[in-house]
Design a protein around this nucleic acid. Structure first.
Length: 371
RNA sequence: GCCGAGAUAGCGAAGUGGCCAAACGCAUCUGACUGUAAAUCAGACGCCCUUGUGGCUUCGGGGGUUCGAAUCCCUCUCUCGGCA
């Protein structure tokens, strides 16, 4: 992997860059749509391509469970499998430590029993959300899986710390992440292959000292890029922006900075100013599927519309003026799309998703242009 | 005309003597969704009230039985089926 900074902004930390990956080149700042189980929900690889996405994210945990990384390997890797002719980053399953395990600490026994995750220093136990079978993920195993998947950017296993977490808990959790990161870096040495990359992940919840310490720990290891995780887990924008501002300036300048799981257009605009280069989020498609679309007139402030509301289902206008997304450029009305979604028709969810994806990627293009 | 079945909140539909302002579904409204256990989830939904183990008025209309009726009886209206 090679990361080149093409241009730096003098007023803030934002920079425009080029990420040379095994399967292709990517302009940064970049947004990655989430193809969790091997598809950006409802959207084909060709459509992503025509929306000008250059990099997408997929997920170790989900693909490991089904169809299995070996199976995907037989297809020639995730790219061939899903017919995506560009680079792919795979998440490690660290987020599933959080999302599947949300309830496993400091709660009643009853809720504990419903948890699907349990962690120890060696790794994380997962109870499959599909069939309840048990699986043990270690930093090493997760790298192996991602290698089999054929991902361009491998993410290390981390513990995405839940929110709220006490300072003590956050420190302990970050320590786990650091321990796993060292093991990952160590293990990766054997497989280092030109083009393929591995990213470390910073944790530390909403605590400045832990975040700073975490940046130090992760930066010291030989990762190709640094990700900041444990953000957008319910802490709210105020906390999130704090983390961005603390951490951004401390990240090694020559490596790409990836803010995991973010996000909303405003969040991305803010994070870019603090030196972040990469983003991923499920919102464009999830909101779209659920009937909500983003609109903007100035590309600074964004509004959300729930097309399912009766009022909007009577609206003949397109979602957004001057929008070149497949829905708007073909003059599909708010009313029609809202009707489709309300009627549980997948075309509606697709059109809304396509719109949101276009908006977010157009935002990235404008951001890059403005740097 | 006779016989039978029925009439419950915007709609569909439970309930057939007290725990019923009335299950559930739909519709409607509000809110949520940020490295996807998510085409999902939460709340409201007779009227009043800021709240509530709150007040008021309801189960086609009227009358009755009962301490107590959406539920039992009488009667009227209407709907649907069958027979003339």
């Amino acid at each position: 992997m090679k990361f080149t900074i093409v241009k730096k902004n003098k007023e803030n930390l934002s920079r425009r860059g080029r990420l040379k990956l095994y399967s292709g080149e990517v302009q940064t700042p970049v947004f990655m749509p989430c193809a969790t189980v091997g598809a950006v929900k409802g959207i084909s690889a060709e459509e992503l391509k025509s929306l000008n996405f250059e990099l997408i994210l997929s997920n170790t945990y989900h693909l490991y469970l089904r169809p299995g990384e070996k199976e995907i390997r037989k297809f020639g890797g995730i790219q061939k499998f899903m017919n995506w002719k560009g680079p792919i980053l795979t998440d490690s399953g660290g987020y599933q430590v959080f999302s599947l395990g949300k309830n496993f600490r400091d709660y009643t026994d009853e809720i504990q029993n419903t948890s699907l995750v349990n962690i120890n220093e060696d790794g994380a136990w997962f109870k499959s959300h599909i069939d309840g079978s048990k699986h043990f993920f270690t930093p090493e195993k997760v790298i192996d899986i991602q290698k089999d998947l054929g991902s361009d950017i491998i993410m290390v296993l981390d513990e995405c710390t839940e929110y709220p977490a006490s300072e003590e808990r956050a420190a302990y959790s970050a320590k786990m992440t650091h321990h796993w990161a060292r093991r990952s870096a160590n293990y990766w040495k054997r497989f280092k292959k030109r083009g393929k990359a591995i990213f470390g992940i910073v944790q530390g919840s909403v605590y400045k000292n832990i975040r700073e310490y975490s940046v130090m720990q992760i930066s010291a290891l030989k990762f190709d890029g640094i990700a900041v995780g444990g953000v957008s887990v319910g802490e709210g924008k105020k906390h999130m922006y704090e983390v961005i501002r603390w951490v951004g300036p401390l990240l090694p300048k020559d490596k790409p900075h990836y803010l995991m799981g973010v996000g909303e257009p405003e969040d991305i605009i803010e994070a870019v100013k603090w030196g972040f280069d990469m983003f991923d989020c499920v919102l464009p498609t999830r909101l779209g599927r659920h009937g909500t679309v983003w609109t903007t007139t100035n590309w600074i402030n964004f509004k959300k519309f729930d097309l399912r509301k009766l009022k909007l289902r009577q609206d003949k206008k397109i979602i957004m003026k001057n929008c070149l997304c497949p829905a708007c450029s073909n003059k599909y009305s708010r009313g029609y799309i809202g009707h489709l979604i309300k009627s549980n028709e997948m075309l509606g969810m697709r059109l809304a998703s396509l719109h949101n994806l276009w908006v977010i990627n157009e935002l990235m293009r404008k951001i890059r242009k403005s740097i």
